[in-house]
Design a binder for these strands. Structure first.
Length: 279
DNA sequence: CGGGACTCCTGCCAGC
DNA sequence: TGCTGGCAGGAGTCCC
């Protein structure tokens, strides 16, 4: 499940492989993912060059020529694969939906079995006004994401902190895994209502926990990327090791804690936490 | 407006 | 062995 760190890792990899390269042809093996792609998707991108590679939350905004951008979201199972021009390749898989043919014979393949992902165009330079980006919250790694911000936004909200942090209109880029990890690191229960966040010290700790968890994951992805890309060109999701996520029934990793990690369901999603460390 | 349920889709795995 | 049911999850959309 690509969250911000995975998307950032993909962004870096695509930028290294594709910046400045010409798109010679776009092959559509499917015209619809989560949403229908524009009719002229392939035509619009053909003959353009990849420019800047940006990220906003979990979205990639890839500049393609003048006044045009490719907007991409990996959803749950989306992947980009870069294939070098001098490499032969197996036949396309059934979930390879869009193939960008790059000058020199290379390819960029978008694969997405569950099709929860998004590919769309931005016509013009105002990508921030795209309907999927317009209402997004702040970037969690920016200076604006601090204890004061969290206190302010949590005020009066009865929803659980878990759901609060998953809300992309508040903070853009957190998903189920890193919310669980950040709450564990901050020592805060996912079940507490957001409005219970009133202590400035605690709110700052949560803000710092979110940022450190994300930074570490990005660093881990970056170090993995080179080897990963060499072997098969896939730029996607890397399984890191987590303190609590996916560890229901195991011992809490905190020294001397001895409690067992619990798995609960909140808003239809699994949460993992330590009932002793997280109050 | 807030908050929750529903929905899209397929791979995977446990259980029979 | 093969089928089935449950689960996983990002996030837009709908409804109360």
């Amino acid at each position: 499940m690509p969250e911000l760190p995975e998307v950032e890792t993909v962004r870096t990899g695509l930028e290294e492989a594709l910046a400045g390269r010409l798109i010679e042809k776009v092959e559509m093996r499917r015209m619809s993912l989560r949403f229908a792609m524009p009719e002229d998707f392939a035509e619009f991108l053909t003959g353009r060059r990849f420019g800047a590679f940006r990220r906003r939350g979990k979205y990639l905004i890839i500049e393609t020529g003048a006044r045009g951008h490719l907007l991409a979201h990996l959803g749950m199972s989306g992947r980009f694969t870069v294939i070098a021009g001098d490499k032969s390749h197996a036949p396309y898989g059934k979930h390879d939906h869009v193939i960008f043919h790059i000058e020199g014979g290379g390819r960029l393949i978008y694969t997405d079995p569950r099709r929860f992902g998004v590919l769309d165009l931005v016509r013009g330079d105002d990508w921030q006004k795209h309907r999927l980006l317009a209402k997004m919250g702040i970037e969690p790694l920016g200076n604006a994401m601090n204890g004061t911000f969290l206190l302010d936004r949590a005020r009066g909200r009865r929803t659980a902190l878990k759901s609060f942090l998953l809300d992309q209109r508040i903070i853009a880029g957190l998903g189920n895994i890193y919310v669980c990890e950040a709450l564990y690191r901050a020592g805060i229960s996912p079940e507490r209502p957001a409005l219970s966040l009133v202590d400035e010290v605690e709110a700052s700790q949560l803000a710092l926990a979110i940022q450190s968890v994300l930074r570490e994951a990005i660093a881990a992805g970056g170090s993995t990327l080179r080897d990963y890309a060499q072997s098969n060109g896939e730029l996607g999701y890397f399984q890191h090791s987590f303190a609590v996520y996916g560890r229901g029934g195991e011992d809490c990793p905190a020294k001397g804690c001895g409690a067992t990690i619990v798995k609960i369901t909140q808003a239809g999603r699994s949460s993992f936490y330590c009932p002793k460390c997280q109050g």
